[in-house]
Design a protein around this nucleic acid. Sequence first.
DNA 1: ATTTATTATATCAAATTTGAAATAATAGTC
DNA 2: GACTATTATTTCAAATTTGATATAATAAAT
Lengths: 155, 155
Amino acid sequence: MIKNGEIEQSMHLLRVLARSYSSVSTHSFGSCKKFGFNPTEFAVLELLYHKGPQKLNEIGSRLLLVSGGVTYVVDKMVAAGLVIREPCQTDRRVIYAKLTEKGRRTIEEIAPKHAENLHEAVSGLTPAEKEKLIDLLKKMGKEAERKWKEKSSRI
Amino acid sequence: MIKNGEIEQSMHLLRVLARSYSSVSTHSFGSCKKFGFNPTEFAVLELLYHKGPQKLNEIGSRLLLVSGGVTYVVDKMVAAGLVIREPCQTDRRVIYAKLTEKGRRTIEEIAPKHAENLHEAVSGLTPAEKEKLIDLLKKMGKEAERKWKEKSSRI
DNA sequence: ATTTATTATATCAAATTTGAAATAATAGTC
DNA sequence: GACTATTATTTCAAATTTGATATAATAAAT
């Protein structure tokens, strides 16, 4: 049986999480915009930069975009010359998105400044506190994912 | 001078935060949808239920909606019979959004089930860990807000 | 009393996201 | 090899969000 106070605490946690997340996101979104991108585009740039060429559906699952949304954002970035599509050799259903030279130069120039902006956004915590926060968030997130998969598989 | 490792830690924190938040949000969005609302509508219902009638611009600033967005969502909820607009007596620029009887009944019926769904989403943590997480998130969020206001005022 | 600045809401077009097909390729089974 | 199920991407319309501007009311200053 679930105690009532515990549910109340969970709801409180979620309100605090939502508020804190949006405060931090404000910095992030503002920084993206300053560099001429929306958050989705920026996330794609970062993903391709850090992880290399990605299958379109991987982009979707990592950034929580539906398939149509991936097509949309990639189209735009291709039009801007930041990204190219590369069909997979072994599976003709699959298409990779890959940074162009221009895309790489762009993100390399922006990334450090963006990082400083974000660093400022979380400057309320000491390194030790950040470490603790990372642990708790990971633990919470992992279980949320697990539970969601469990739910989804029950359909 | 900022040490490089600290920035890296901050970036790591932000990645973990984003991922953890979206894992939890998946539960929240799914729950809203199950009850026939999108997250924005649900948030408005909850806000009006917990805080009573709100000025439209208060709704906007709390839920991070631009004024056009507030008009849009309130229009829809008025059309659904969940909310009414009430002009302010003392300031004719101001309009309040207020739950109708139907709106109140709806949220009262949904809220407990929604709360249980969310409680499940954060079940990876013990009450003590939740308490600690709340503290850290609050501290981080407060400073992020302060810094953002500081930035904004410098324009 | 006018003027000026600020605040609140609405309007509207453009950008973005969502969700439901449609299309095409692969994998597994018989 | 034909049949069925699954996976990947695109297409398209509808829903939602964003951003700029318009309208109206209040507040502050002269």
